[in-house]
Design a protein around this nucleic acid. Structure first.
Lengths: 217, 217
DNA sequence: TCAGGTGGACTTGTATACCATCTCGTACGA
DNA sequence: TCGTACGAGATGGTATACAAGTCCACCTGA
């Protein structure tokens, strides 16, 4: 049997990421357990893991709640992503094989084709978002730094970051796809400064698209 | 009573960090529980928390072991620290108050005095290491980015990183202290580029001091 | 009427018992 | 002699029972 705790973890996680569980909603161990037909023990373990990732807040003897994020949190996340993902580009560029470059080019092509189609956003946006994750994930994998990957992973799982494309204007989407192409071109040229600079711009542009102008503090 | 699980967590954690538990040593839940006179439940929770932080490795049905790190891991950690801590400097510089600058200068002074003394290393090195952590921690706190702090925290707890000064030569120690002074001076001057550059150099110098020349891969 | 205390319901934290699974050794057969 | 299969012992995972802490509402007394 696959570990129940892991299953529970994934269920709650996706429930949070899809917005099924609203912000700061209470997560009572007993309720979750009976609703899934299991005991509290695996639920506890799942909640602890989610707490370690920052997806839920737990107070001693007071239970767990869905964590909430404000604009300041999101700004922090995008800033850090811009630094870490551009570093991943820097590491990946000198290591990139021809096959890996080709893989990235394929993803670019698929996304460009998707962007041209006129499908309803219900099917187009998830497909774009999925390939976007593949693109970024591949570069992180190519960087060959497990810890860098782990750090970025802990930053990504905030809902709004996962669903970036939902709020993109057509122009922003085009710019994003051009960035992807440019990153691959820079990697093909073996220019890690170029590649990492584009990646940094890419993430920072996403930040502004989502958050608007920098908050005056 | 303070949560038993937390107590257990801290005990195991310090045991690992001080080297009391040797590398890849098995951590049997039952043994730990009876040796502390408690049940397995809080031990389990403590081990999961440590696993989430990367201090122990758990394999399904095979138990938990103290995690081990090789040179490549340490290189990754110092590289990431150099990036993240320099970013902390960049954020902290424009926010630094006069009181905070003075606090950092005090820490510098204390470390310089400690370095002059002839105390046995048993008392001098821990005192230096403690103040070093305070210095770096203060700058991270000043950066006002909780997530940045969390990311750095997850990188720090590898024993050898904690005990940096143990392997320092007198020259390296002097250079390290000079770096600290220079960082504070740069922050006082409000020059975040200068400050972050020194911090980056500071961490990378530590990397080379500890790991020697870059591995040829 | 309001302040403070008290009781109870609810929830988390801990202990224990039970079950599933893995590991490793031994014996049997090819 | 080597390989495989079976089984005993140990270990991790799950469920349930119980203890302890928190929060809220109600009640009492000034």
């Amino acid at each position: 049997m696959a570990k129940i705790a892991t299953t529970v973890y994934e269920q709650i996680r996706t429930a949070i990421l899809t917005g099924e569980l609203s912000n700061s909603e209470r997560l009572v161990e007993e309720d979750l357990a009976v609703s899934m037909g299991i005991s509290r023990t695996p639920v506890r373990e799942a909640l602890r893991r989610l707490a370690a990732e920052g997806l839920v807040d737990v107070s001693p003897n007071r239970g767990a709640r869905v964590a909430e994020w404000d604009v300041h949190d999101l700004r922090e996340i995008f800033d850090l992503r811009s630094i870490l993902e551009s570093h991943a580009c820097e590491l990946a560029t000198p290591r990139a094989s021809a096959a890996e470059i080709e893989f990235l080019e394929n993803v670019c092509f698929e996304m460009e084709e998707l962007a041209k189609t006129d499908l309803s956003s219900e099917t187009r946006l998830p497909a774009l978002a999925a390939r976007n994750r593949i693109f970024h994930g591949k570069i992180i994998e190519m960087s060959n730094s497990t810890r860098l990957g782990l750090l970025i992973e802990t930053l990504i799982h905030v809902p709004i970051v996962m669903q970036t494309y939902k709020v993109y204007s057509p122009e922003a989407l085009q710019r994003s796809l051009h960035h992807h192409r440019e990153i691959v071109n820079a990697m093909k040229a073996g220019d890690e400064v170029w590649a990492s600079s584009v990646m940094r711009a890419h993430v920072l542009a996403a930040r502004e698209e989502i958050l608007g102008q920098p908050d005056p503090e």
